[in-house]
């Protein structure tokens, strides 16, 4: 059987989505503005919090060992990873439950291409791009302001790599959740679940400590590895390289491969129980 050229197909998806986005230009611009506003408001909130911590007189301001500009790198990383997930996968995962409900998944199954690839990447959301630029600007602003940080070239190589891995872990969680809509017929609270689970990943993992925090940290690091998603890349760039970080950095690689494999398995199991919706 002829094997489709996945790269060419992906390119076509991206092109079509761009044409679509540019057709509804006002909508695109509004999406961009709101995306940026949310990100800036979040940044504004932490600026206020750090301002308060400085103002209380003892001169120290850090959240679980993250100084202001280190934390800004953390936020930039959050924006980066989330815009990749939103840009590539979010709209598609949402669409999957709709496809299941309406029976449109039939058409995806008929096409001579990997179904998971098709349903995961059909629609690229270009309005995430400006947020990427915002995140890069934030990195460029914050990194020189972190005291005593000298970057090693390897950090510049590792950072993008871990961003990609973080994106893939989140993708796995997302497609795993979306696949459950094939089982359940409908999964309206997918977004909610997604929001509540990823909510844990948006904060430095060091804040989870104590008799309740430590088990929580363990679960969300090693069982559902969402704490790895932002924390590992952010620490790679914002903190000096240290030997103590290697175990977690190594685990991130294992976690990425593992999550992808498990989500692929879940997706295919879910497909097998797809019964189509009669028209």
């Amino acid at each position: 059987m002829h094997r489709p050229n996945y790269l060419a197909v992906f390119w076509m998806f991206a092109r079509n989505s761009l044409i679509r986005d540019m057709t509804f230009r006002t909508n695109y611009i509004i999406d961009v503005i709101f995306g940026l506003c949310w990100a800036l408001m979040n940044l504004g909130f932490y600026t206020l919090v750090y301002r308060l911590m400085y103002a209380d007189g003892d001169g120290a301001a850090d959240i679980a060992g993250w100084s202001q500009y280190e934390f800004f790198v953390f936020i930039a990383t959050t924006i980066l990873v989330n815009s990749f997930v939103e840009g590539f996968f979010m709209a598609n995962a949402e669409e999957l439950s709709e496809l299941t409900r309406t029976g449109g998944l039939d058409f995806a199954l008929l096409k001579p291409i990997d179904t998971q690839f098709l349903v995961s990447l059909q629609r690229i959301n270009w309005s995430a791009i400006p947020k990427l630029l915002l995140a890069l600007a934030l990195l460029a602003y914050s990194i020189p302001r972190i005291e005593g940080l000298t970057l090693h070239p390897i950090q510049f190589i590792l950072y993008p790599l871990y961003i990609v891995m973080g994106t893939l872990i989140l993708y796995s969680v997302m497609i795993g959740l979306a696949a459950t809509s094939i089982w359940l017929g409908r999964n309206q609270s997918l977004y909610d679940f997604w929001f509540y689970i990823t909510n844990f990943s948006r904060y430095p993992m060091e804040i989870y400590e104590g008799s309740f925090g430590s088990p929580l940290r363990f679960v969300f690091t090693y069982l559902i590895p969402i704490l790895v998603v932002i924390n590992v890349p952010a620490a790679t760039l914002a903190k000096p390289l240290s030997d103590t970080n290697w175990p977690l950095a190594g685990f991130a690689v294992v976690a990425t491969v593992g999550s992808l494999a498990i989500s692929r398995w879940i997706f295919q199991r879910a497909l097998m129980s797809y019964r189509s919706a009669s028209s």
């Binding site: 911590m53 209380d56 959240i63 609270s189 909610d192 948006r202 430095p204 804040i207």
Partner: peptide, 21 residues
């Protein structure tokens, strides 16, 4: 489920106040 984010809020603010004198 709506209360789940409270958990992170508790940890976040505990960390913030840990830095306050």
């Amino acid at each position: 489920m709506r209360f789940l984010p409270m958990i992170t809020q508790i940890f976040l603010w505990t960390a913030v106040f840990a830095s306050s004198s």
